[in-house]
Design a protein around this nucleic acid. Sequence first.
RNA 1: GCUGGCAUGGCGCAAUGGGUAGCGCACCGCUCUUGUAAAGCGGGGGUUGCGGGUUCGAGUCCCGCUGCCAGCUCCA
Length: 663
Amino acid sequence: MSSLTATIDGVERELAPGTTGADLFGERRDVVVMRVDGALWDLAREVPAGASVDAVTVSEPDGLMVLRHSTAHVLAQAVQAVNPDAKLGVGPPIENGFYYDFDVETPFTPEDLKALEKAMQRIVKEGQAFVRREVTRDEALAELAHEPFKCELLTQDTAGAEGASVEIGDGDITIYDNVRRGGEVAWKDLCRGPHVPSTRVLQNGWSLMRSAAAYWKGSEKNPQLQRVYGTAWPSKEELTAYKERLAEAERRDHRKLGAEMDLFSFPDEIGSGLAVFHPKGGVIRMEMEEYSRRRHIEEGYEFVYTPHATKAQLFQTSGHLDWYADGMYPPMQMDEERDAAGNITKQGQDYYLKPMNCPMHNLIFGARGRSYRELPLRLFEFGTVYRNEKSGVVHGLTRARGFTQDDAHIYCTREQMKDELTTTLEFVLGLLKDYGLEDFYLELSTRNPEKSVGSDEIWEEATATLREVGLASGLELVPDPGGAAFYGPKISVQARDAIGRTWQMSTIQLDFNLPERFELEYTASDGSRQRPVMIHRALFGSIERFFAILTEHYAGQFPVWLAPVQVRAIPVAEPFNDYLGELVARLRAAGVRAELDASDERFPKKIRTASKEKIPFVLIAGGDDADANAVSFRYRDGSQDNQVPLDEAVARIVEAVTTKAQV
RNA sequence: GCUGGCAUGGCGCAAUGGGUAGCGCACCGCUCUUGUAAAGCGGGGGUUGCGGGUUCGAGUCCCGCUGCCAGCUCCA
């Protein structure tokens, strides 16, 4: 018998014909599939001659995806075991887990999920093998005639459809049989694979999370299926760690902290997505805005103010009413007059709440003749806008219906454009760092042909310029095809927070379009009239949203300069009230938000209260401190610094505020 | 907007299969008060998101609205 050669984990080896991945890697329990010339294969398949084969473990991203997808199959088998009428949608792996969509008569309840987990445990215990079988399209259609969604995937061009690539790859059509130890086929599914060798590999590292409706193929126009979400990990320990991360995110949730710390609320009386800031949240917001203002002055911005409402014509001119009327609050009709019979005697006027500030800034630019000497002209405003977000998407401060942008529009010449974008990006990153965010990457959103205006040349120039500037920053630049606004491409700054989540922060958008629509012009040095280029940029995006992100980033433990109460002075007993009262007065004179707890509560209770309020500096004084003309510091983590001389204590606190220190 | 779930004093929760709303924290008062996350006693506060309906009787059942939560779709 002849043999074949293959490269196994980088080493060229002679193999007997028919050698499978299982033969090669079967000993290693963490190996779930193999990579054959770059493609992922089931371990049960035979290694082809001349191939380069590597083991893929469950701990690496590809292996984990296989594990998660295999878990989705076990879920689907369990669902059809419990409910044979359930029709299968798709079941791809996703970040942290997987889902599978089903067409069922009645949606899943939490009790259903528990029952499904039980059924899944049985399947895992049975140690069913995942067996790959190549079929023709006609065979697959015949075998899966009772699965309408699978048939649709088989017969339609599925390019781009959500999750569909899991079912059908580029190559052969395959069906995976789940085979019990006795050889009996327990279940089967149309699937590209690959899979883990046995359901046993899943162990107890998975869990069902929730169920929800999802549109078939991700389109609002299609019927909704019932989706079951699960999570899957290589081990029980990693599953537990993941659940702990979720719990941590919940503890940091700004909606929860906002109520607990008395920062803001959403009164039902005002309406969905419209926040009010309470005094403590107000302090944080004021500090955020104050610092931003100062930096904008230093960067050469000029400050403008514009109203919240406008006649319809303005947004007709800008094009927003054509593109985004649905996202705007409905118009308010003004000034219409009727006679007794109800006939209109005076034509009215529609007014809208503004969903953006740019058209108003354009009017300021156009209010008089502009010279090239004024450019770049940078107009800044904390502009409050209103957007009629769909009821299901409103989410705390991160997705509100009324919010305030730290919005600016820069008008410049084409020649200035690149430098201006570069300094703007530097400004953005520097400012975000001052607020405590450190870890960034960039996203370049390019044109969506279905939703855009302007010529190809203009889009290409704008996109190329943004790309150059982005690459020059040295940060990772991730493409986001089709993600641009209708008037121009954008770069957005993504920031990672303290627990590793990424948030879209600042956006810088290039716009050749609105200057055209508003017929903006400046006089060039040669006396000719030229059209300026416009840069839209927001650093926080929305103050409310940035507020939420900082709250979650810091888990409510704001750095001193932002903390609503910076110092709480707590006497060990009443006789020391005056002693600490004087210190508090000194701190206040130095601009520190300090207060004395002179209440009738006992000492331990006061410590507890200050701790729950997450106050950065708790100053304690009793006999020992007073004798030494000193005070004791207690920090949020419970650590302590005793008997610090009063002068030093004041200096230390003032410095923590001015340096934006976290303590 | 769609699917599902939820809605009880400021907050967190309780109220057997429909029978006239309880608890903790917070709040107010009194007593106490010398070293690190809750002193003791007493008190006030809700008609159960809003509007209809079923019933002798509804926080508990039904319908509509509002709001919230999760996911989907969307996010200039």
